[in-house]
């Protein structure tokens, strides 16, 4: 198992060397390093590593593009991303391409080794932080309309029967601003008119 070839793609040489020595200490002997991601495609024509260990932010081409390329042209190669980034968008994009693992760069030795083993055995592994971020983003994108305090102020006064002009002078804002809030509420909720809006707001506890 430990004789399977691994390729580290990282423009940060010191980090790559560190990982290589860590892997060799744990019995992984066929480990190569590639520091320029642009040469990956041509390299994979001649070499066939079982696992790619890759960073996201690299100087000339990023790990997300490289992952997509590898998935498409060399679907048999497994991909483990090892990155500092915890940006949701990167994680989402990488998952879409179908990577096998994602480790945050401050992971400990044992976590790295066990992840590499898991993936080589056909499993997948993601740092707990990655899972948290994905969960949070799923929660946040529920897309339910929420009213801002200013919008609530305006809606409250509309519901009490005040005209736009009256509202503007009560809230010390311009008529234009009141109109913007009103329009935004309709656009957000997709409701047709203010009457529907008031009904919706009452029913959903916004007023």
């Amino acid at each position: 198992m430990n004789d399977q070839p691994i390729l580290i793609v990282d423009d940060h040489r010191l980090f790559a060397e560190g990982v290589r020595s860590l892997l060799s200490v744990n019995g992984f002997t066929f480990v190569n390093i590639l520091s320029d991601g642009r040469q990956l495609a041509s390299l994979l024509e001649t070499q066939a590593p079982r696992l790619l260990l890759m960073d996201i932010a690299m100087e000339h081409i990023d790990g997300i593009e490289l992952s997509a390329m590898v998935r498409k042209q060399f679907p048999a190669i497994k991909i483990l991303i090892v990155s500092m980034y915890t940006k949701r968008i990167y994680i989402e994009k990488l998952l879409q391409t179908g990577i096998d693992g994602y480790l945050i760069k401050n992971a400990g030795d044992e976590e790295l080794i066990s992840t590499v083993c898991t993936i080589l055995e056909g499993g997948r592994y993601f740092s707990p932080q990655v899972g948290d971020i994905l969960l949070k983003s799923m929660h946040a994108s529920s897309g339910e309309a929420v009213l801002t305090p200013r919008e609530k102020d305006v809606l409250q006064l509309i519901a009490e029967g005040y005209s736009t002009k009256e509202i503007s002078s009560r809230l010390f804002v311009s008529v234009n601003t009141v109109e913007t809030h009103r329009k935004n509420m309709l656009l957000k909720t997709g409701l047709r008119n203010v009457a529907h809006l008031i009904k919706w707001a009452y029913e959903n506890g916004h007023l």
């Binding site: 801002t148 913007t180 656009l187």
Partner: peptide
């Protein structure tokens, strides 16, 4: 902090509101 970006015909309404 509330950030809203809404489109109304050819106008984009950006609202940034805090409490």
């Amino acid at each position: 902090l509330f950030i809203q970006l809404l489109q109304d015909n050819r106008l984009l309404h950006l609202t940034v509101e805090d409490n």
